[in-house]
Design a protein around this nucleic acid. Structure first.
Lengths: 348, 348
DNA sequence: ATCGTTTGCGAAAACGATTTCCGAGTTCAG
DNA sequence: CTGAACTCGGAAATCGTTTTCGCAAACGAT
């Protein structure tokens, strides 16, 4: 591989000058500059990023820690983060933590050793060692999608409160009043936040959300399926359900179909995220969008700003969200006299 | 950050010895070794990967070039590749090429400058510049999932021929004889390979696959939806359809439901890949599995072997596949006298 | 005419590891 | 007892950049 030295020799200048031409870090005479550029092209020179990073203490890298790479709720974060990182002329190094603190710490250790310029966490846990490790360095980091309790960590989240409110208002608007909710793990702040928005909108409309209508899930498809079983057992006669993410909502739909029930006929279902799968299932899922691209961009930009500011910023960026109406929600069916109810195998 | 020098001083040895302890590259006396290890722990020393990589010409990195990070058919490749790479104590740097040769070349350039130890392509195109660039270096690479025409490139693929055969045999076994196929782009070798296995199994059973029953798609969900429109226009009276990937198969199911048709009642549908979405849609999709994990592991291992062999290997690894039967396939319905046919809005 | 300031460039010192070379002491076979 | 081989470890070169320092020439303002 050709090195700067080769370029310098070929162009008849010093190594320093070559570096200056490449990085535009100091004025260089037009003629000299052209000579260097020609030489670079001539011998197909590629600046070595390890050497540059070693000296300048910037690996030209961003790290991305994800709890599960193949999880549908994260794939778009990964995609847009990569895109944004690349626009900033950096590389993206990705690590799957499997939600395991040890794996996470190991990955962060690896990143530190690589002189990364910043790290993005998707859904780090509150008691993660990783953030402590990073606080001993000067490496900027951002937590995406999950605000932490401690207010000192920079985060980028969607407007979770409004998400809950939008879902509730949509269902209320269709005429529903007996509405249940399938939440994520309630020890996670964003779930409580979404739930707050949801209940507040309900109570504004004069409705309550009794505790028996709140189901706690784990954000995975199976949660939704299992919740249908619970519903069939307790038969709370609800007419609509809002799941706090799409995967669970799709699980609800699947579970209902498995029991001979139909959505939205027998129950309206809505979710959160607007993952691509929403358009693949039937009925297509009504949902509140997670602004994946805007959030990813904001996270990368925050990192870059933090780097150039040279100090930790503790911003909490909140990206607005909106409702996407599709097929899984409709006005509540009349409970009696409806002919199809008679042919149903089961009912809620 | 502490450096080797600090460790050496603290342990009262030379830098070389510290390096030898860390890399186990030369015998070191037990006492000295312990002194060094203590010092390392004491000052929380982390070897710098950039410095190490610069000198040893190994970035401890694997690059992964993907046409679309958020595409469901790839996400499991990404996940398992990351896992396998990490087991080999390397980092994974990921790039989305958007199937664009320029973006791809730019990413490869970036990787070369980082002294990566190997590169995995998912579905590189035949006329990609990237492979030429790499052939000028000594960096090993592997193409995952799509065998190239030119036999000199190391590849890891599933057994595409058998995939086609398994799909056909399954549908034949259920009693179908009028079976259509929705292929991927037919200029792609693996699609023809799958089709060959499919048609061969059909003809072994004494059936033909007429040209009008072969539809060419692009591996995306919308292809499936669109194909249903075509089927409704030409009404070929087929009873089963095999799509060459799950996304298109799920599109078929969606399109049929949109037209008041049901799967497998009105048509059996099968796919290829066994992505997680298969279990989320209703009916759950019968499919031929893509062995994501085995393929990813094989690709990473091939890279590592190539590195230690010190020369290009041109292996073509083929991983076996198997049929996964779920709900979207069933024996063909009787075409006449079937009561539900009368209530259908449309029919194939 | 003089004194700063800017422009333009080279020499050389980092950055933090690995690797080569070498030398001193031990062990062991013949 | 001797030479070869092995064990252990230090000094120094090296990887390919960036960055600091210094110097000379040109420039602009007083």
């Amino acid at each position: 591989m050709a090195s700067m030295k080769d370029v310098a020799e070929m162009a008849g200048v010093s190594i320093s000058t070559v570096s200056r031409v490449i990085n535009d870090t100091h004025p260089v005479d037009g003629k000299t500059r052209r000579a260097v550029e020609d030489a670079i092209r001539m011998i197909n020179y590629r600046p070595n990023l390890l050497a540059a990073g070693l000296r300048s203490k910037s690996g030209n890298l961003i790290g991305l820690a994800v709890p599960d790479i193949a999880h549908h709720s994260f794939e778009e974060f990964i995609k847009y983060t990569e895109q944004s990182v690349r626009e900033h002329k950096h590389g993206l190094i990705i690590g799957d933590t499997h939600s395991d603190p040890d794996a996470e710490a190991e990955f962060i250790d690896h990143l530190i050793r690589r002189n990364v310029d910043g790290i993005i966490f998707i859904r780090v846990s509150d008691q993660s060692r990783a953030l402590d490790m990073l606080n001993e360095t000067s490496i900027p980091y951002v937590v995406l999608d999950r605000a932490l309790e401690s207010g000192t960590v920079p985060t980028v989240t969607m407007d979770n409160f409004t998400a809950g409110r939008l879902a509730a208002e949509h269902l209320l608007g269709l005429g529903h009043s007996r509405i249940a909710c399938l939440t994520g793990p309630l020890d996670v702040a964003l779930c409580r936040e979404r739930l707050n928005g949801f209940t507040q909108a309900l109570s504004h409309a004069g409705h309550r959300l009794p505790d028996q209508w709140i189901f706690e899930g784990d954000f995975r498809f199976e949660s939704g399926v299992r919740t249908v079983e619970l519903l069939l057992k307790s038969k709370p006669r609800i007419t609509a359900l809002w799941a706090q993410n799409d995967l669970m909502a799709i699980g609800i739909i699947g579970g209902m179909i498995d029991h001979g029930l139909a959505v939205p006929r027998d129950m309206s279902v809505a979710g959160v995220d607007d993952i691509v799968t929403c358009r693949m299932v039937r009925p297509q899922l009504t949902t509140v969008s997670q602004p994946f691209e805007a959030m990813s961009r904001a996270a990368v930009q925050l990192l870059m700003r933090e780097r150039s500011a040279g100090k930790r910023l503790t911003e909490r960026i909140v990206i607005p969200t909106e409702l996407v109406v599709r097929q899984s929600t409709a006005p509540p069916a009349e409970r009696t006299g409806s002919p199809q109810l008679k042919t149903k195998k089961e009912s809620l």
